[in-house]
Design a binder for these strands. Structure first.
Lengths: 342, 342
DNA sequence: GCCGTGCCCCAAACCGCTTTGGATATCCGC
DNA sequence: GCGGATATCCAAAGCGGTTTGGGGCACGGC
């Protein structure tokens, strides 16, 4: 069922039918009525491929999953972020094009994606401090918004980020205020910009409290339960052991809790834990109103929605100056943190 | 940089250039060489929109996230499954089109997706027993493969599934063999086909052991940590309490462990837990060689790869009869299960 | 009676590629 | 020298929409 046969069945030209369906003025109300009814009845939907070729708009946004190497860890926040973005795209008629780019082929991959015309814009995730993708995309002249920031990027670009530094300073200060002096940081991968900002916030608060940071109490790794468990287990066995942990993800915190309890210690009394919580739908911090961990909380789904909205306005007005948006994190008090043991 | 200008710059027709690039015979080796070199040099990449319109193939596969309602839980296995599928699509030149379909608009949504020609095939996830989508897609004549099965579907269709019944029978038998008599099942949502099969396996093993199933020991819900915690906590406080749990996901098992330890009980001694483990990259069952839970294990990423491969062969030969593939689950022995307490 | 003015509608060009159906040139055997 | 392969190449017709640039017609004013 294409435009042509629909037009024929109505005894009209394709031009008129097209204009009628797209709300152009040059068509009488009666005709428009008739056309719309017929389209509805015959179940007409424009062929996106043709539409896209004619209009030059792909009506799709690219999201890239970096690294398709077999044992790569898929970022767990990815699903929620994309679901959030989808909520924004849907009503606007955009679809998500997911591109899995094998490590190493990235430059070529982005180039091809841009030239292929499959997408009208791109969302960049998990940037590194000097992320080459930003300059690349600027050069390719494809609208994009970065979820996160790339500290050392030269060009100005649109981004939406959580205030990582401030959130982690807040979390750490909470612990120093409680009298903790040996605080460990279980952070995300060291080459991620967000992890660097989180570390900065941590150091800032430690310094403000006049505390030294023990290098052996800082760890960077993929944010898994096992990382939290293994790192905490090791640190707790050492002497002196930390009395508190700041962790970059709820999964890490769950691992820490496992190590803590395995040692016969109690969380919130013997060892305090403050975590960042991405508000993942399938991994909530306890129940509503009864959090399990003291946490900084910033729902990533919300960020997906907001990032998508920024990108859509950017696509609508590509020449507008880049926009920036900083999302704050809530601070939630839970039973996992308490005064430092004497 | 389109075909036309590339052809002009070479003094050839677009026909010849197209044939040269696509490996058709009607072109001399010298010309082909020249064309390929120029394409490389000028950074030519065919416009997918036009290519797609001309060939009729979209070079994209649709994956649908059901439900975009604000508080919907995004299935955590989704990310790994899609990453796996992407590994298969990539080398074949296919991209993933992610469609977020709001609850209720599904029928219309699939119809539009099919007619729009954006995708060459579809992967259906999380089917319900009498899933209407299967008949719908068959009617729409769009190649698709179901991850899971729909028990009551009438038509024959391609599917790939884990052997849920057998896996859960195996898990349950392990516990009955250990002498457990009161075993609880913390299952996925009751309307999911996979959850029904898992329950069937559970009941089968209980019956084989001559054990009655207490209705209050069966729970269906979203597979979150909190569900595991709350359900186990409640059950352990009741009298008689179960001595063992079978759980449908690692996250649930983590919640159960939390409840167990909160009660001062020890997992594997006072309370046994056997879980299913989807092998998510960011949520592993302990470390390699040192599992945390006794588990049935079937990596969902692998299933993504395999499902994608099935779909691609189906697209290549749409008239072949539907294919079926059953994936077994491993059984992994861990410290979370032990003899029933006396 | 003529002309300007809206109102509706349409034919045809175009988006960038593939593919069909020749066209031209070369080369072969006889 | 000539018919018929064979090897190369190309013009043009799609694919299914949008958009440009009119064209006919009725109406009103002079």
């Amino acid at each position: 069922m294409n435009l042509k046969s629909l037009a024929e069945s109505l005894g009209l030209s394709t031009t008129t039918v097209s204009r009628a369906l797209n709300g152009y003025p040059d068509v009488s109300a009666a005709t428009r009525e008739r056309v719309c009814a017929a389209a509805q009845a015959q179940g007409y939907a424009p062929n996106t491929r043709a539409l896209s070729l004619a209009t030059g708009r792909a009506m799709a946004i690219g999201h890239v999953i970096p690294g398709a190497s077999r044992h790569e860890i898929v970022n767990p926040i990815f699903a929620d972020f994309v679901a959030g973005a989808g909520e924004t795209y849907g009503p606007a008629g955009y679809e998500i094009l997911l591109s899995v780019m094998p490590e190493g082929t990235e430059e070529e991959g982005y180039r091809r994606l841009a030239r292929s015309g499959r997408v009208d814009g791109l969302v960049l995730q998990a940037p590194r401090p000097a992320d080459r993708r930003i300059d690349l995309l600027t050069e390719l002249n494809l609208p994009f918004v970065v979820h996160g920031r790339a500290t050392e990027a030269e060009a100005d670009y649109s981004w939406l980020d959580m205030d990582n530094r401030r959130a982690f300073a807040r979390a750490t200060r909470h612990l120093t205020d409680l009298g903790h002096r040996r605080i460990a940081l279980l952070n995300g991968p060291a080459d991620m910009d967000f992890a660097i900002r989180r570390a900065a916030g941590f150091h800032e608060a430690m310094e403000a409290a006049g505390l030294a940071v023990a290098p052996e109490h800082i760890r960077h790794d993929q944010m898994t339960e096992f990382f939290g468990y293994a790192a905490a287990r090791e640190m707790l066995a050492a002497d002196p052991a930390p009395t508190a942990f700041v962790t970059a993800a709820l999964l890490i915190a769950l691992g820490v809790r496992r190590a803590v309890e395995e040692q016969g210690l109690r969380m919130g009394r013997d060892v305090s834990v403050v975590t960042h919580d991405d508000g993942l739908s399938y991994l909530t911090n306890g129940a509503e109103g009864a959090p399990l961990f003291t946490a900084t909380h910033a729902p990533v789904r919300e960020m997906g929605r907001a990032t998508a909205a920024m990108l859509l306005t950017r696509i609508a007005a590509p020449d507008a100056p880049p926009a920036h948006r900083m999302m704050p994190a809530d601070f939630v008090l839970g039973p996992s943190s308490g005064p430092a043991p004497a």
